[in-house]
Design a protein around this nucleic acid. Structure first.
Length: 750
DNA sequence: GTGGTGTAG
DNA sequence: GGTTCTACACCAC
């Protein structure tokens, strides 16, 4: 990795460009290709022969007219993971460094590249090429994700229009900022000495009389400012491309790397596209599409440009055909769209093979816990859970991924981001059922990848009532208590809130993931007191019930809610205090730089599973303690300290017990719905005395909810009787209030 | 809403 | 083609 002595000037061609010598082979080759093709642009004879005429170039003309004034900057951070690792551990600077996931190098610094190490090279090969290479496992993406969002944040200070592309790339639409600067120049006119910062593609001369040139030149100066800010405040270097659309900006940002920038003036567009050899090199044309193009005999960009559009449309569909046809001319009218917070959170792990249900369950649990921590930190909750697998068999070595998903039951949804333990067991149960929908575990199977995903993320609106309180139970019943995530188009406010919650410096606070895990451990053991589980309902001493709860009402509740209430009855207040104490003790432990996760004791496991069920616990033979390395990692610049990497290793499975059979199925939630649609103000199985003891505000809220449910139910009944469903719809019934009930959900699973 | 495919880094 | 670990768009159903 090079040393920097001031960032901005280094990117300016008026100063020496020492770093150009440090391009890696790939990038050098790319540049050579550019030069090569640039030397032979379309000849007049080629145009005359009908290969490429203005007629089939019509999109270029239209697009240029309409969109030519946009100024888009594409920022591409140099070997991102490696740079982050060097920031985390400055001692690594100057050493050859490779970040690997499993047995593959996913990125490496330029020092390692000098020794022949490359991306997607096996670890063993990298070691052969460069025995002194420092290998860092990059499977935990947390630190990269965090730095990545810091960069996006920083870029948003320049323009609100920032679109992330993976962790290490961003598009920024700086058109408005450029216009603002033009206005500032005002009547004094464009200064004659206006220059382009960095390189100009194809060494094209800047024409300060051309409005587009002026704007792009200003864009290049903004790009330098952005890169300087990224370096000064986060410590990372990156390359930039400046052009009139996203496609071109991305293409030119790759021409000169690392730590350089290139501006494409409109007149060079054709050359720039012509410099690409294969359609696959066009961002937006992936391997599958490229293969189909090859099947059509299209193996070059020129070939794609001149291929009859109608034939292309027949093969690829109108939409795709037109899009890639336009891309081949360098035309891309897609806008820079901030995506807001991620729409889903997922975690996955791959392995050579996994062929036992116990192992699968263990791995699912690991992934789930890591995800729950992230979800807790995120602050949202999830409405959909998805399991994706990839399997192999003797006959067919590789299968594509396949997935199954289902809604997260309402009650669970409300608790997902609270970091408590009681979500883990039912979620693992659900995930195992999803797994069994894909794999018949009665037969031999080989799974090589598991992915758990929380999708459909929404903001919970109600503060969580004290767990175990009746308020907790009742509010879980109310539908419509979550705000659907706003339109994915843009919600910067949401993004800011989301980032705000994420942007914590550890400082004095306990990292929230650990609080959550602490809760997980505590609740898991706390559940056991005085509770014996049966297959379909709980047995309990009556005295354990909180005052005001009717035994009959209680019996009607789903088991997990019963557990909540029992746990809360004895501990609702004490537990709060207890949690605070525990957080403090965790904090103390963390201050010592070490924290130990303990597995559940055997006794605790026994208490979680009824001895008389078929699902006997599989007790983990190892009484292992999982040490969590907890070390500081800060950036050079104190302003932009990285959040500490809480988990150096993914937490190992916490316990290894089988789920009590029917834990979730037991509660007949349907019975909680109003039975008499017209008379009772609330569901028949809600005790009036209990109800009357609730705060007026809550009572009103519940009444409104129940009223709404009844209305919806009526509408659905009417719909059902008047309309015969198609077979597909029967498989995916329309959503009714009941469809969210746990029972309904399990009916679908089985 | 579900499940598959394609694209991206 | 996948090897890693994501994330999103789109489409048929």
């Amino acid at each position: 990795m090079m040393e920097f002595n001031g960032y901005g000037p280094a990117a300016d061609p008026r100063y020496s460009l020492q770093e150009e010598e440090e391009e890696d082979d790939d990038e050098r080759e790319w540049c050579c290709t550019v030069d090569c093709i640039n030397s032979s642009p379309l000849t007049p004879s080629a145009a005359a022969s009908g290969e490429l005429t203005d007629d089939n170039h019509k999109y270029a003309i239209q697009a240029t007219d309409i969109l030519g004034y946009r100024v888009i900057v594409h920022i591409d951070l140099d070997c991102f993971y490696a740079q982050v690792e060097m920031i985390r551990n400055p001692e690594l600077k100057g050493k050859p460094l490779a970040v690997h996931q499993k047995h593959l190098v996913v990125t490496c610094n330029y020092e390692a590249r000098k020794h022949g190490v490359n991306k997607i090279m096996s670890v063993s090969e990298a070691k052969d090429k460069c025995p002194q290479v420092v290998l860092i496992c990059g499977e935990d993406l947390t630190p990269y994700r965090e730095v990545s969002y810091k960069i996006t944040d920083l870029l948003e200070e320049f323009s609100p229009l920032v679109e992330r592309l993976g962790f290490d790339e961003n598009f920024v639409d700086v058109t408005k900022l450029v216009e603002k600067r033009l206005q500032q120049i005002g009547s004094s006119g464009v200064p004659a000495e206006l220059f382009v910062s960095g390189h100009v593609y194809d060494y094209q001369a800047l024409n300060t009389a051309d409005a587009k040139h002026v704007r792009l030149a200003l864009g290049s100066q903004i790009a330098v400012e952005m890169r300087t800010a990224i370096y000064n405040r986060v410590g990372l270097t990156g390359s930039a491309g400046i052009a009139s659309n996203k496609l071109l900006a991305k293409l030119v940002s790759g021409t000169l790397k690392p730590n350089q920038q290139t501006t494409l003036l409109p007149e060079s567009t054709r050359d720039c596209m012509g410099s690409l050899v294969h359609p696959r090199q066009v961002p937006g044309i992936g391997p599958k599409t490229a293969k189909r193009l090859e099947f059509l005999g299209i193996c070059t960009i020129r070939g794609l440009q001149t291929f009859p559009l109608d034939l292309l449309e027949k093969d690829l569909g109108v939409c795709v055909a037109q899009r890639i046809h336009r891309l081949s001319f360098g035309e891309d009218d897609s806008s820079v769209t901030p995506r807001g917070p991620p729409q889903s959170l997922s975690d996955e792990d791959s392995f050579r093979k996994c062929s036992s249900v116990v192992e699968i369950k263990k791995k699912i649990e690991q992934l789930l816990i890591s995800l729950l921590i992230r979800l807790q930190k995120d602050g949202r909750t999830s409405r959909t859970i998805r399991l994706t697998i990839r399997r192999s068999s003797a006959a067919n070595k590789w299968f594509n991924r396949e997935s199954r998903q289902c809604p997260v039951p309402n009650q669970l949804m409300q608790k997902l981001n609270t970091g408590t333990c009681d979500t883990v067991t039912p979620l693992v149960d659900i995930l195992m059922k999803l797994f069994q929908k894909m794999v018949d575990t009665k037969f031999q199977f080989y799974v090589t990848l598991l992915n758990v995903c929380f999708a459909n993320l929404v903001q919970p609106t109600l503060p969580s009532p004290v767990r175990g309180s009746i308020g907790f139970y009742l509010t879980q019943k109310s539908p419509g208590k979550v705000d659907v995530s706003p339109n994915r188009k843009v919600n910067r406010q949401l993004l800011r809130q989301w980032k705000g919650s994420d942007d914590t410096d550890l400082g004095e606070d306990i990292p929230r993931p650990l609080q959550g895990m602490g809760n997980y451990l505590e609740s898991a053991s706390g559940m056991s007191d005085g509770v014996a589980y049966a297959n379909s309902s709980l047995t309990f001493p009556n005295s354990n019930l909180p005052p005001g709860i009717d035994l009959d009402v209680f019996k009607e509740l789903p088991t997990n809610i019963q557990q909540e209430i029992i746990a809360g009855a004895s501990t609702s207040q004490d537990q709060l205090k207890c949690n605070i104490n525990k957080e403090q003790s965790i904090k103390k432990a963390l201050c010592k730089g070490n924290f130990m996760f303990r597995s559940l004791t055997e006794e605790e496991r026994k208490l979680l599973v009824p001895p008389d069920t078929d699902c006997n616990p599989t007790i983990s033979s190892s009484d292992n303690c999982h040490h969590l390395d907890f070390h500081n990692s800060t950036l050079d610049n104190p302003e932009t300290q990285l959040e500490q990497r809480v988990f150096n290793d993914k937490p190992a499975h916490m316990h290894d017990y089988q789920l009590p059979c029917g834990t979730l199925q037991s509660g007949n939630v349907d019975s909680e719905r109003p039975t008499d649609q017209n008379s009772a103000p609330f569901p028949s199985n809600v005790d009036p005395d209990v109800f009357s003891e609730l705060p007026a505000e809550l009572r009103n809220e519940l009444l409104t909810d129940w009223k709404q449910q009844r209305t919806v139910s009526k509408v659905n009944v009417a719909k059902r009787t008047s309309k015969v469903r198609s077979s597909t719809r029967a498989r995916h019934p329309k959503k009714t209030p009941k469809s969210n009930s746990i029972l309904k959900y399990f009916n679908r699973l089985y």
